[in-house]
Design a protein around this nucleic acid. Structure first.
Lengths: 194, 194
DNA sequence: TGTTGTGAATCTCTTCACAGCT
DNA sequence: AGCTGTGAAGAGATTCACAACA
């Protein structure tokens, strides 16, 4: 998130920032910003704050590995397409290189610059292309088996949009993006003052 | 989330659960489950655990208000449509009743059973229909002004999918669903063992 | 025996507050 | 004078552990 803020800052000609300015942009406290930046090994000067370019590099060194990582997307529905469009061309270090669906009408094509395959080929393609991360945008019933295929193919992490708790070995990192839960949370706090 | 698990459990004929069973399904610890259920005022018996029906009611009493709440969606792109399809008919207490876009080709129609309007009418429609919650699925540049309109119309909360930090009065609850950040997080832990 | 409900302990995250620097 | 870096305090969340109970 800081990276995004810094990118915008740089494009507007800002060369350095104080923690309280960043916290403004981030919706944070200044202390939180300083802690976070400590974690990536960034350092600023009391006089000028943090240098934006150097900060970006520090965050990059922390978040991005040595090279880039390939991403596979499973489930080419509205959501899948939205996500492909969203990520395509945005970060070259995190590239969606294969998409899967079990509807033949959607396979063996190129959508949004991404090659599409049939779900049955997940394991082979993901392994061959050394894809490290999977995004799951399939209906609930298909989620676990798709996750299993990704895990068998050796991915290290899954971003899961399906409203199920996936069963995976604990060596695989799973992040849930549960829109139903999120909406209920908002509805709750909209009523009960948040 | 518990609600979803219980719904499935009931449909499979399970009448009661122990905390350790629920924790299995939820990917939790048993202690966590008991704490959470305490919070909604549920109580179980050492002999039979928690009664699934009664548990659902307790959670409902806690999460849902007296009546239902209306939801507006701003931004009818792939993501917006995916979300409409996703939420439509799922929960009758949380209903998407209006969608907005600034592309005239998408307005004054009914998509997925949802009436669509032009963005310029957000304030009027939301106020008239007493909509309490907004979902933002617009591009970055349009996000803040759409949020402002929602806030002026009096919504109590916003579910924000745009990768920006929204500026809103603190009486309005904002939940960010940042897919880029989520993907970076997964990519990070996929590499650095999570 | 096996489970709940819950104080107490532990762990994690956030905020405070201030010495040290420019 | 005003900021950073960071120990120490504080706030929250999770886990432990056990009395009470069926």
């Amino acid at each position: 998130m800081y990276r995004r803020l810094l990118r915008r800052l740089l494009s507007q000609g800002g060369g350095s920032v104080f923690s309280h300015e960043l916290s403004q942009m981030a919706g944070n406290t200044a202390a939180q910003v300083r802690r976070d930046l400590m974690a990536v090994g960034a350092l600023g000067s009391p006089a000028k704050g943090y240098d934006a370019e150097e900060l970006m590099e520090r965050i990059g060194g922390f978040l991005d590995g040595v090279g880039g990582q390939k991403v596979a997307l499973v489930g080419i529905g509205n959501l899948g397409r939205a996500i492909m469009a969203y990520f395509t061309g945005l970060r070259q270090l995190l590239e969606v290189t294969a998409a899967f669906d079990n509807n033949e009408a959607k396979t063996d094509r190129v959508i949004n610059g991404v090659r599409t395959y049939h779900t049955r080929d997940i394991e082979e393609v993901v392994r061959r292309e050394k894809i490290a991360v999977g995004i799951l945008t399939v209906p609930v019933d298909a989620a676990q088996s798709a996750a299993d295929a990704l895990v068998r193919a050796g991915v290290g992490g899954i971003l899961n949009f399906a409203p199920v708790v996936l069963k995976t070995p604990e060596t695989v990192f799973v992040e849930d993006m549960d829109m139903m839960v999120a909406l209920e949370k908002v509805a709750y706090f909209a009523r009960n003052g948040g």
